[in-house]
Design a protein around this nucleic acid. Structure first.
Lengths: 130, 130
DNA sequence: ATATCAGTTTAGAATGATTCTAAAGTGTTG
DNA sequence: CAACACTTTAGAATCATTCTAAACTGATAT
């Protein structure tokens, strides 16, 4: 609890009740993939009612501070990933199935980067089913 | 023109005025990345006013028939790609910059596919800037 | 040719995730 | 504990996309 407060403070985030609850859930040691909606549902199960606006705000605050990764897998919702290490994903749109690939993947044969651009990250999505 | 009609018919799509115009634009020989909005704008420039609903319908019809690929790069719009070969992309969200990587890319070190799942495709997105 | 009908197009409404607004609430600092 | 900047929130607004259901049109049979 005080750990969480310190954790938030050390990321320039004021430790409000809501952020403490959300951080407590998200950063409990197990990697998680959440959407605003799924997070809201999970917190509600735990009797923590936090407005959706705050959930969106908080996810973005955490994201801006590098505490979460943002995943764009489907056009109709944004996933946030608590695993901020460089990694990739298996993804099944049909089944909402999403798991990390932590194993070291190498992408070979990339052409040279377009002029005046810099590579931010190389993302590999392994689409399943269909 | 008759080519386009045949092309549509051979894909089980009735060659309507609108589909002929859209196919004529999309499949003119140069690879294109479009969104419903950008397609609508391009056609309007050419004095072809087609309702957005039809543009959405047509893009999906073409997609369902394998004439287009769907790209999920950003959460706020869907891109369709006239290049249906297996390929990858450079992408800059900030600049709406999107180009094909046709070169043969190899992804090594993938872990084994989750039980009872099948790989549909391996997608590599090289994110630029940030 | 023409009637017929399934497949299409369309305007406008509806949807749904996300963002915005602006008013009320709350950490933090002195 | 005063004062203020930062947060939270309900509800409205936004925006891409989908839906609805009425009008339209390509294909087929006569």
């Amino acid at each position: 609890m005080n750990d969480i407060k310190q954790f938030l403070r050390s990321n320039a985030l004021r430790p409000t009740k809501q952020r403490i609850v959300i951080a407590g859930y998200l950063f409990d040691g197990t990697d998680k993939h959440v959407t605003a909606e799924s997070l809201s549902t999970e917190l509600a199960k735990r009797k923590h009612i936090i407005s959706l606006a705050t959930i969106y705000n908080t996810l973005h605050d955490f994201y801006e501070n590098g505490l979460l990764k943002k995943l764009t897998l489907s056009a109709d919702r944004v996933y946030f990933d608590t695993n901020t290490d460089d990694h990739h994903h298996f993804y099944s749109e049909k089944e909402q199935f999403l798991i990390d690939i932590n194993k070291n993947i190498k992408v070979n044969g990339l052409p040279k980067t377009p002029k005046n651009k810099k590579i931010n990250k190389v993302e590999v999505i392994v689409h399943l089913d269909k």
